[in-house]
Each structure stands twice: as structure tokens, then as C-alpha cells.
């Protein structure tokens, strides 16, 4: 599903002394099937933005289009449930939303609310568990007896089981250890490709944005600050620093290398291996570059 924001603004606690603009005149377009990373420091409006994607909040001005659905300030949103069945949201620390007695029941909760039939639900539970890397032995266990990492997987399976076309991920790897983080991102990426999803990843990790995203949107104070391919956006060190963001470590290193050695090595999302080869070429080539 294509996603379009047209001059969207959202005022938090409108008509109260505490009103403030969380989203300000935001416009962008995400074609169906894209993997988008949304980056910005805490308070830049990321959470508010994603709440527009499944109608948890309604814009106070402008228009949000998700496929055929439209959200505007004027009209009371219709068919919200249908929209939510198409847009799955994995919130931060999603394990906090678990509540059922068994893993299977919790995963079925979403599909059941969206009116999926029993046999289909059962098929989906099995499939979702497998997708998040848990064995079928877990179905009858209580989610509250699992480890933190396993609980998170169950919660994510609960979202995947609704078979969304758009998958929204709000810092899905927060609090996991490095291996857990990598496995989880790989899992989402695999899902993105196999199901032809439109994926929207809110992240603080420039590395994840570079590795997985086709397109990056940088938010600042509720507005779009930059937008483009990761290898174009993430090389703009000064601009990123202005909004308290870092460049990926690879970019930082290449910058300093270029300064010190007077070279012009580009950032092309290369691997450490490829970078090492390029550096070696410069070193072995002697001082020819000067």
C-alpha cells in the first residue's frame, strides 16, 4: 500500500494551555513495498507520526493516505478496524501488550478481532511462531513464563498473524543484546521481502537504517528535515549534527580518513572488507595520491 502525508500537522492536547505541535506541515510519499527508516532524536515526532498510520490519532490538519484509506481533520475516520487489519504496528517493548493465558491465544487475539476464521487463525499462529523463530512447543505455554526476548517474539508474532500489508516497527530491538538485535532485524527484513510488505522502521540506529532501508526520512521538531537514500543522507555530517544525530560509524571513519590522507573515498554502503581493500590500495600505492 502506498502511504502519503500531505501537509499533515498534529497538535497535541489541542485547545488546552499545554497544546504543542508534535507534527508540523509534514509531507512525504512512500511507494508500496519500500523499506523506510524514520530517524530523529527523542521528541522529534516519530511516535506521533506512526500513530497516524493506523488511525490511532487523526491529523489536526492535512491529509494522510494509506492505500485507499484517508484520514483528515474534518471527517470522522470510517472503517478504522479495516485499516488496522492492514497496518500492523509493533510498538516499543511490545512484550508489554501480552495478556492471554497461552501463547497461542495471545497470537490469535489480533486475527480474531479482525474476523479471521478459526482454522485460518490456527494456521497463522503456527506460521507466525515459525517466522519469529519459536518452536511449536510454545503454543500452550503462558507468555509470562518466557524470557524477555521470547516474550517479545510472541508479541511480534501476534502482529504478524494479522497479515498486515504495512508493517510499522517502533524501535523493535530496544533492550536486546547484540545477537538478539541482529536476529530480529534479519527476521523483519526476511518478512519484508517474502510478504512484499511496506515496512516503516523507527530507529536510533544509523547502522540499521543503512543496512535495511531503501529510503530514510529524518525528522526534526515534527517536520521533515532530510529525505533520501541512506547513502546520500548519512554522509551529510554537519546537517545531521545540527539535529543531534550522528553519522554511521563507517561514514565517520571514512570522513576522518579522507581528511587525514587527502583522499576522496566515497561511502557506498560498503562492507568493512571492501573499505579495508580501498584503504590498502591507498597505502600500498604510496604517496601517489598527493
Amino acid at each position: 500500500m502506498d502511504i502519503t502525508f500531505e501537509n499533515v500537522s498534529y497538535i497535541y492536547q489541542q485547545h488546552s494551555p499545554f497544546a504543542h505541535k508534535a507534527i508540523d506541515q509534514l509531507s512525504f510519499h512512500i511507494p508500496s513495498g519500500t523499506f523506510v527508516a524514520i530517524v530523529g532524536h527523542t521528541g522529534s515526532g516519530k511516535s506521533t507520526l506512526i500513530q497516524h498510520l493506523n488511525g490511532l490519532v487523526q491529523p489536526t490538519a492535512g491529509k494522510v493516505k494509506i492505500g485507499d484509506f484517508e484520514l483528515t481533520a474534518e471527517k470522522k475516520p470510517k472503517h478504522l478496524k479495516q485499516l488496522r487489519s492492514k497496518v500492523g504496528v509493533v510498538f516499543q517493548y511490545p512484550e508489554h501488550q501480552l495478556f492471554e493465558e497461552t501463547v497461542a491465544k495471545d497470537i490469535s487475539f489480533g486475527p480474531k478481532n479482525f474476523g479471521v476464521g478459526d482454522s485460518e487463525i490456527q494456521r497463522r499462529v503456527t506460521e507466525a511462531l515459525q517466522a519469529v523463530g519459536l518452536s511449536a512447543d510454545y503454543v500452550e505455554r503462558s507468555p509470562f513464563d518466557l524470557s524477555g526476548g521470547q516474550m517479545r517474539r510472541v508479541a511480534i508474532a501476534g502482529v504478524l498473524a494479522t497479515k498486515p500489508n504495512v508493517l510499522v516497527l517502533d524501535e523493535p530491538t530496544a533492550g536486546l543484546d547484540p545477537r538478539g538485535q541482529k536476529e530480529m532485524m534479519e527476521m523483519f527484513y526476511e518478512r519484508h521481502r517474502s510478504e512484499q510488505l511496506t515496512t516503516i522502521l523507527v530507529t536510533h540506529s544509523m547502522e540499521d537504517a543503512v543496512t535495511y532501508a531503501d529510503h530514510v526520512i529524518i525528522l526534526n521538531k515534527g517536520s521533515k528535515y532530510m529525505e533520501g537514500k541512506p547513502e546520500e543522507v548519512f554522509v551529510q555530517k554537519e546537517a545531521l549534527q545540527q539535529v543531534q544525530l550522528d553519522v554511521p560509524e563507517m561514514v565517520a571513519f571514512i570522513n576522518r580518513w579522507n581528511e587525514k590522507f587527502h583522499t576522496k573515498l566515497p561511502f557506498t554502503k560498503q562492507s568493512e572488507r571492501e573499505l579495508a581493500t580501498a584503504i590498502t590500495a591507498v597505502l600500498k600505492g604510496g604517496k601517489s595520491h598527493e
Binding site: 478496524k81 488496522r84 510498538f91 508489554h96 501488550q97 487475539f109 489480533g110 478481532n113
Partner: peptide, 16 residues
């Protein structure tokens, strides 16, 4: 805050 967060998470899973 927590109540708001969880009710939004469950609303996203189709609770009305």
C-alpha cells in the same frame, strides 16, 4: 502514560 500506550497497542490489534 502506560495506560495510553497499552490501549493504543491493543487498539492496533483490533480492540474497540
Amino acid at each position: 502514560q502506560e495506560t495510553d500506550k497499552i490501549s493504543k497497542a491493543q487498539a492496533s490489534r483490533g480492540v474497540d
